[in-house]
Amino acid sequence: MEFGVVLDHLPLLVGGALRGVLYAVGGFVIGIACAALIILGRMAWGRWVTIPSQIFVEIVRNTPFLLQAFFLYFGLAKLGVMMPGYVAAIIIVTFNSAAYATEILRSGMLGIPKGLLEAGDSLGFTALQQFRYVVARPMLRAALPALSGQFIIIMLNTSLLSAIAIPELNYEASNLASTSFRPFEVYVVVAVIYLTLSSVFAGLFALIRRRVSGSWGSERRMQDIV
């Protein structure tokens, strides 16, 4: 084992890791906003939003992240829709986040008693008012554990963005692996960096969850991974 060379390049790797995190955070935040809009749209316009959004969700959830990256970056370019790599990357992370977050928020909404929704209806609320005053808070609270798990999965998935030449951690790692002739050591260090990042975020989310809820029963669900 010879970690010296790798550790000399640690700033390079850390820089890549931070860029990956940036994509993850950016895409995830926009993605959750999109998911919330999808849920609101479903409440307001029923199947006209439900069916197309369901198709979107199923396509994203049933195809690999890598393929989505290639399709968006190369496939659409063929149709004349060109975009710089970082735009494609943020879109893919956003799409992925939006699709999974829609499912997570939907199941968070299932936990809201039907009577509460009827109460809102009976007070003459519009869909927007119903969403804002009746649905949003309990839904988000119920969804928080699953959302935090999903964020970590998304963050790990940014390691695949190297395929469209985004200089994140895995990208820097493969460069360093071939120039340093110490590929195994490089990936051990990379693994440690990812482990640290996911632990830090897991802790952060646990903190948020404790602040937000307190005694709310958290619903655990098996998260999707890739």
């Binding site: 970590i152 790990l156 998935n157 390691s159 695949l160 895995n170 790692a173 493969s174 692996a177 590929p183 195994f184 990936y187 051990v188 990379v190 693994a191 990812y194 482990l195 996911s198 632990s199 991974i225 890739v226």
Partner: peptide, 17 residues
């Protein structure tokens, strides 16, 4: 814990190398 915290691609590279 390892698989929840490390991307699969990195694990595969580690095994390979």
């Amino acid at each position: 814990r390892l698989f929840q915290g490390i991307p699969l691609v990195v694990v595969i590279f580690m095994i390979y190398f």
